[in-house]
Amino acid sequence: MKWQVVALSGQSIHLVGPDGGGVAVLAGHQFADPGFTVIGAEVPRTAPQRGLFETAPTAAREKALA
């Protein structure tokens, strides 16, 4: 079922369903729902297994450790 976000208020997301009915849900609950997706959103890339720190340039890593 597709719902449309019509307003954001603090931690609440106000949605309108396909039948025109509305509901407000807490953002944390919405994002934690395993069925929740954003239509048309790009899927974020995952971090490499070795971690992001090792992907930074050597000079930047040395500066961060200093």
Results as ranks from 00 to 15, higher is better:
G20R: 06
L65Q: 12
P48D: 15
R45P: 09
R45A: 14
Q49W: 04
Q30N: 00
R50Q: 12
P44C: 01
L52C: 10
V6M: 05
D19F: 01
S12H: 12
V16Q: 14
V23H: 11
E54L: 03
A64R: 14
F36A: 13
F53I: 07
E42M: 03
R45F: 04
R50E: 15
E54H: 05
T55F: 01
G17I: 04
I39G: 01
R45H: 06
G35L: 13
A24E: 08
W3H: 11
R45I: 01
S12L: 15
L26Y: 00
E42T: 07
V38L: 13
Q11M: 11
G22L: 15
T55Y: 02
Q4L: 08
V16M: 06
F36V: 11
G10P: 05
A32G: 06
T55K: 03
Q11T: 12
A7I: 00
G22F: 07
P44V: 00
F36M: 11
L52Y: 02
H14W: 12
P18A: 14
L26V: 05
A32R: 13
V23I: 13
L15Y: 02
A56W: 14
L26K: 02
E54N: 07
A66M: 08
G51R: 04
S9V: 03
D33P: 01
A56E: 13
G28L: 13
L52Q: 09
A60W: 07
Q49V: 12
A27D: 11
R61E: 15
A56R: 15
P57S: 06
A24P: 07
S9G: 12
G28Y: 14
L52A: 08
V6F: 04
A47K: 06
T46C: 01
T55S: 09
H29E: 07
A7V: 01
G28A: 13
A47E: 10
G51L: 03
A47F: 03
G20N: 11
G20H: 11
G40S: 07
Q49A: 13
V6Q: 08
P48L: 12
E62P: 02
T55W: 03
K2Y: 01
A41N: 10
T55M: 08
K63Q: 06
S12I: 02
A32D: 08
A32N: 04
P34S: 06
R50P: 05
A32W: 01
S12A: 13
R45V: 03
T46W: 00
K63V: 09
A27F: 05
L8H: 10
V6A: 05
L8P: 02
A27Y: 03
W3S: 09
A7Y: 06
T37C: 04
P48K: 15
L65N: 06
A27S: 06
V38T: 09
G20C: 13
K2M: 07
G17L: 05
Q30V: 15
R50Y: 07
Q4H: 05
T46Y: 01
E54Y: 00
S9N: 14
A60K: 11
P57A: 11
E54I: 01
V16F: 02
F36G: 10
M1L: 15
A27M: 04
G35I: 03
A24T: 02
A64L: 15
T55C: 13
